[in-house]
Amino acid sequence: MTLAEHAARYPEVWRKFSPRQTLIRYAWFVGVVFVAVWSIQNLDITWEYFLDAHIQAGDLIVRMVPPDWDHFSDILDPLLETIHIATLGTAVTFAIALPVAFLSARNTTPNTVLWAIGRFILVASRSINTVVWALIFVAIFGPGAIAGIWAIAARSIGFMGKLIAEAIEEIDHGTVEAIEATGASRLKVLLIGVLPQVLPVITGTTVYRWDINIRESTVLGFVGAGGIGIQLYSSINQFQWDEVAVMLLAVFGVVVISEFVSAAVRQRIT
């Protein structure tokens, strides 16, 4: 075969995508960029503030150093309170999320109405941020840790409930069938056939959510729901940046430790 014959048989250039595919890819790309540009342009942004941002930021950092360690003993109690709020909030979540998860899983729900209610609880809980939940509970219980615990629980139910419900929907159905075949009642089937299968997921998500909740509970004080956030917010408002620096370092320490603990526990149970 001569070179000319080769050239006739094969195209000269090779493209991964057909022109149509290329067009669609570019259209997506242009669309995404367009939406992003439109969004930024339409935001009511005063760009002048940007001009001296580096000065402001530099000023903040200078004021933060050196951190004021004299007040460290004052923040120990709020720090502990933060951890308590996260832990107790997670405990409340555990007690509520478990039944809701069983309602929201298609294979364990008693009926469609309860399933829909369970699903609604999960969606509503997850859509509203912990801080927004805290606003609501502060209005109900007044400022303090109780509002914080309930806010943590209200947001976490959706998170844990969804993950556990998904795990329940993925269990081995044969095992459930075998327990049903022994003549066990519905509740006993859940206890022996379903629960052992999802137990690792339940403990894993609980520990994981506890770790997230530690981080969340550091800001609950901004809306009055207890924890270190109260001191942090007041120090910021009083421009006590050296105190703020100490609190941020403390928060950083607690969050890193809790993340470490949570990862270690989860590694052990799986």
Binding site: D172, G174, T175, E177, I179, A181, G183, I192, Q197
Partner: peptide
């Protein structure tokens, strides 16, 4: 069902 024992292909034990 209590009076009928069943044995399965995939054993179906609670692992």
């Amino acid at each position: 069902r209590r009076r009928m024992g069943m044995i399965f292909q995939e054993y179906n034990l609670v692992e």
